[in-house]
Design a protein around this nucleic acid. Sequence first.
DNA 1: TACGATAATTAGACTAGTCTAACTAGGAGG
DNA 2: CCTCCTAGTTAGACTAGTCTAATTATCGTA
Lengths: 251, 251
Amino acid sequence: MGHHTNDGPITESLEDYLETIYELIRDKQVARVKDIAKIRGVRMASVSPAMHRLRDLGLIVYNQREYIQLTPKGEQVARKVIAHHEILRRFLRDFLHVDKKIAEQDACQIEHHISDQTIDRLVRFFEFMDTCPLGSQVQEMFKNCSEVNPELPACMEECARYDAQMRLEHEQGNSLLSELEPGEKGKILHIKALGALRQRLIDMGLLPQTMVEVERVAPSGDPIWLKVRGFNISLRKQEANGILVERQATA
Amino acid sequence: MGHHTNDGPITESLEDYLETIYELIRDKQVARVKDIAKIRGVRMASVSPAMHRLRDLGLIVYNQREYIQLTPKGEQVARKVIAHHEILRRFLRDFLHVDKKIAEQDACQIEHHISDQTIDRLVRFFEFMDTCPLGSQVQEMFKNCSEVNPELPACMEECARYDAQMRLEHEQGNSLLSELEPGEKGKILHIKALGALRQRLIDMGLLPQTMVEVERVAPSGDPIWLKVRGFNISLRKQEANGILVERQATA
DNA sequence: TACGATAATTAGACTAGTCTAACTAGGAGG
DNA sequence: CCTCCTAGTTAGACTAGTCTAATTATCGTA
């Protein structure tokens, strides 16, 4: 009873162990070192010392070679981690339409690094989407845009009321990055490119709302030198064609 | 030239160092060990070996005691990390309305653990919100619900067209968790509680869409025992009052 | 009862990342 | 020219988490 439970920090790894223990007890009544090792993809030799740490933190009841039990405190921590996991997975899978497996992986990583406030906002977001008719409408439209047909400019065909003509107007009033002259600035509105090209552009930091400035264009118009976020990068014309920008006044 | 650049994994910490170097070069032209240490909040003695690792990975050009330069490959990695950071921060801050500082911290953590696919979906999400008029409408309404007045049942007052009456109907057709009888099941629709109580309920895993079953209610109606996700938890009546549920048929 | 299989633990090595403390290189001023 | 200051490095310790290999405990059964 005087066994002062060390209040040190619970690491990411220990949180994962707790989560695994919780799920094992829930699904199979008991949690054993072997099963934990299997689920977490590590050796039993790694689990043993982790259990000692959890025991020292007062999160599990553990006598060597016996079944592992959660203390109330351990149960509480596990439940919290699982709640974070759950809401993240739901957001990624059901709202952003990330593939099931990837959503699971991402949720598993992110759950350890996300603040309570952000979790709360996600919950509010779901509550909003469930309550407000606009919410489900938007969700439906976004789904059609992003998921059903990710390899086509989907909105042209799928999104009913607004989207087709809106996107058209959007394009009409604006330019492709490849059309800007040296010295002109623009704000990125939309990455039209798809697949690997799209990925490349995103990884170069060419995100919607980002400001770009054309520094120089090769005579043939092919390599185009840009300034983005204070750094210079060069694009092939084909790449620049995949980006819709809004021209900015050159001061 | 035969200096085969080791293709080992780039750790989270190394990514952060690269990001810092990128930003220093962008903002101050040069990156020095001292400044990196200061920004990252570590000692210079920790930076030195990290620079050696980055150099061995072919990501920076570094001769001891001289300025640090990014190689093209290093620049590319840094740009990608920064792009992830940027889009996450924007999502957290501008869409979920997480406090600026917390959004920054979360983005900084999550950027290392998020898949390319999820990033792509976030970009699509922003593109959608910017293009579709419904998008900005929803954004506006959600903002009023979650941010402007987080301490009140905001939607009752702020959200114009739909929300007030919708939320009312929502409540009318359904029950509070405290109203369920032992043996009854319900699906959580909404956490009405606010502040610390709300946080507690979320941390217990009582999220929207979660199924709960009332196991037992104390005679006075005060502690209520629930089954959630296969585990038992108990709630004070006050806590159970903060949860709106939809009664489920008891099979 | 003893044996073999299975489960769990321990010992010892390794990596990554941090720290403190001691040392070194290089420049500016007296 | 020497000295001192600053920036940077190195040495050595520590933590957390993993591994392999060897050891120990337990249980069921012949």
